[in-house]
Write a protein that binds this DNA or RNA. Structure first.
Lengths: 232, 232
DNA sequence: CAATCCGTGTAATCGATGCTTACATTCACA
DNA sequence: TGTGAATGTAAGCATCGATTACACGGATTG
């Protein structure tokens, strides 16, 4: 979308907000909630063609608004992408926490596995959205208090879960930091490889992908668990 | 570079090819090896600001050539990026194979570790170049015989090494495919997290980064090795 | 109720980019 | 030596991000 030929976009028929007693209400001068609509449009564009497919003008077009209008709400394209990325990150975190809420409470290592699985599943179901939250370039690194609060929350969650697992003697290594980074690298890497096209065989079906994701996660968990063989 | 103000590029002083008996040879009409120079310029641009920092015009500017000239050698920007990515992939493979050539021959698992380490080191020393080879979008997926021969070679190499390790009883799992994918995901993930800015603490120094890289690699190797504790 | 302020949208414009077409130059081969 | 193919230039198109001047109209005031 960003520099390719494209039909003139067919002009949406002026969204029917506020039926307006009698006049045809062709298009109210003020949009209503343009900011929200722009973010949604951009999210959709990301879903269709990745981050590069997002253009301010196309988002404006889909919102039925002039090309300059978005700049009233976002000082730059990056600012729009920032908002989009934060929204995606929010959804990501919400889904993972929801999945974890259903996991058994008294098996930390099992909970850790559950966390990783939810991570992988979301990333594979929403590849382009994962792409924008994983590439930190869309987050504002100047803001105080850590840009994406949601991301820090997730990391904390993983760390606490690992600490519990260690406290219950479920881990072989005491270097929790390394284990945490390795675990993150594993799921991150698998998710990104999937997005970046390193597994061309898995078309859209993704059943193989999900099975493999689970398998390598288990391989990792077994690798860090205490007494890996012998009994089981 | 792709849409920001920039000084007019200072105009290189007409590269002195072929001193030309006596005339000042201000600029030969034909460049000599524009294709090569364009790829180098683009590689440099990638090194300076990542893939998005590459513009055909800027590459042309640095080659001291008109904006349309590159299109004689590359039908599109993507084609240029393709060439750039293949060049980077070639260097990547060369360095890894060189490192592996110095590894002890009769310890497959050790060789596997060495491979992973070389991978991580190159990725961390050439982050932006790793970025373009990891994102497969710059490779031509239509070409027969697999686009990046070099990449397939590397994967084969890893698989053979793992098979040897298994044959010598060094591995705990017999599912070599899973082990290979997990290993790839681990190093890939770590490298990309580093590039994508998930480890903001490691400024440019990178000593911490390299140590951590080695640590998580060892953690993984221990996890897949047979008899992980007990003796060592 | 009316006047006005200011948030929000429009129109027009700028420079940069990818890419194409028409033309110019020069190399290489017959 | 002459000519055609290869390779460069010049000019131009459409799109993009971004800025500026202006227009609209809802909300707050007196």
């Amino acid at each position: 979308m960003r520099s390719s030929a494209k039909p003139p976009s067919a002009k949406l028929p002026a969204r029917p907000r506020r039926p307006a007693a009698r006049a045809p209400a062709p298009k109210p001068y003020h949009h209503g909630d343009l900011r929200r609509v722009l973010i949604d449009a951009a999210l959709q564009l990301v879903g269709e063609g990745g981050p590069d497919a997002v253009s301010v003008r196309e988002a404006a077009r889909r919102a039925g608004v002039s090309p300059g209008a978005p700049f009233r709400h976002f000082p730059s394209r990056d600012a729009l992408m920032n908002a989009v990325a934060e929204e995606a990150q929010r959804r990501f975190r919400a889904e993972i926490e929801a999945a974890l809420a259903e996991a058994p409470a008294n098996n930390p290592l099992g909970r850790f596995r559950c966390l990783g699985l939810a991570y992988l599943r979301w990333a594979m179901k929403n590849p382009t959205h994962f792409e924008i939250i994983s590439s930190r370039r869309f987050f504002d690194h100047d803001k105080t208090a850590g840009v994406s609060q949601d991301n820090a929350e997730l990391i904390d969650l993983a760390e606490r879960t690992l600490a519990e697992a260690f406290a219950q003697g479920q881990l072989r290594s005491a270097d929790l930091k390394q284990v945490q980074i390795a675990g993150r690298a594993l799921v991150y890497g698998f998710a990104r490889m999937n997005i970046d096209g390193h597994f061309p065989r898995w078309g859209v079906a993704g059943a193989d992908a999900e099975r493999t994701a689970e398998a390598i996660l288990d391989l990792f968990i077994e690798g860090i668990a205490k007494v890996p063989s012998k009994s089981a």
